[in-house]
Design a binder for these strands. Structure first.
Length: 268
DNA sequence: TCGTGAGATCGTCATACTAC
DNA sequence: GTAGTATGACGATCTCACGA
């Protein structure tokens, strides 16, 4: 974070202990002893314990917000069942089987199930079922593949194992599908897919594990971004609170001095 | 212009917490 | 108990200011 003041720039280590210092400052100004972190050397394990037991930024900020009018609250995320995620589409397509240029088969079943068979697999064996869904709980054993609602060229893409995408190349009565490299760098949504029970070969299991890991990493990446955003907001909130409390403190001191003068007039 | 230092940002991992 | 989420820690990389 950059702090610009009279053409001088000051930097604050936003991600480290700055918020902790602010918390101490707020605690000092409000004359509470909530902040119990000692100044001495704390070994990393104890420090981790202390930090990890701290309530989340959202909770703290919302508590602060309820105290300080004008400070916006961080909205609680809606539960997943509420409403339709904007990026998840329902596939209402006729039951069809398509063959790709690489020899893979894609079967679009009624109800939106997409099945992919790899070259060399004999028919049903080796099929991977991709069940498109708008909402509701995933079926037992279901895994998640990545899905982008629309690519740059206006087509729909369904991310499948092996860093490939199933692309809906045209809409209408007879949509066409292709398997090709993704045209968008980042997937924007998810669909439910591929029960592990349908995976047989070690290669498929490895692909499944890789896919799960990539999905987990992607989610964690987004979570980290969101967490950092919340932390920044929290720090801003603390800063404004410090400013408000300092003004209040100053006023109270001045008031106290005034009252002292009134109550104890000089005898000279 | 280039090297360097300091802070910012990002991705990942580990782990506590939470919801079911 | 388990899966998913939140967040601290850490390392890599980026960005910017500053001095040689």
């Amino acid at each position: 974070m950059w702090w610009h003041q009279h053409n001088l720039c000051f930097r604050h280590p936003i991600e480290e202990d700055y918020s902790g210092e602010l918390e101490k400052k707020v605690a000092t100004i409000t004359e509470t002893d909530e902040s119990t972190e000692s100044e001495g050397v704390i070994d990393s394990h104890k420090r981790r314990e202390i930090l990890s037991r701290r309530p989340s930024y959202r909770k703290i900020l919302n508590e602060l917000s309820s105290d300080v009018p004008g400070v916006p609250k961080i909205e609680e995320e809606k539960s997943e069942g509420e409403g339709t995620p904007p990026n998840i589409a329902t596939m209402a397509v006729p039951t069809s089987i398509y063959q790709t240029s690489t020899g893979q088969y894609i079967a679009i079943a009624q109800g939106g199930t997409i099945q992919i068979s790899n070259p060399g697999s004999d028919g049903v064996q080796g099929l991977q079922a991709l069940t498109m869904t708008n909402s509701g709980a995933p079926p037992p054993g279901a895994a998640i593949v990545q899905y982008a609602a629309q690519s740059a060229d206006g087509t729909q893409q369904f991310f499948v194992p092996g860093s490939q995408v199933v692309v809906q190349a045209a809409t209408g009565d007879m949509p066409t599908y292709q398997i090709r490299a993704p045209t968008t760098a980042l997937p924007q949504g998810v669909v439910m897919a591929a029960s592990p029970g349908s995976l047989h070969s070690p290669q498929q299991l490895a692909e499944e594990a890789t896919r799960k890991r990539e999905l987990r990493l992607m989610k964690n990446r987004e979570a980290a971004k969101e967490c950092r955003r919340r932390k920044k907001e929290y720090v801003k909130c603390l800063e404004s609170r410090v400013a408000v409390l300092e003004v209040q403190n100053k006023k109270l001191i001045e008031e106290l001095e005034t009252l002292k003068d009134i109550c104890s007039p000089k005898t000279d």
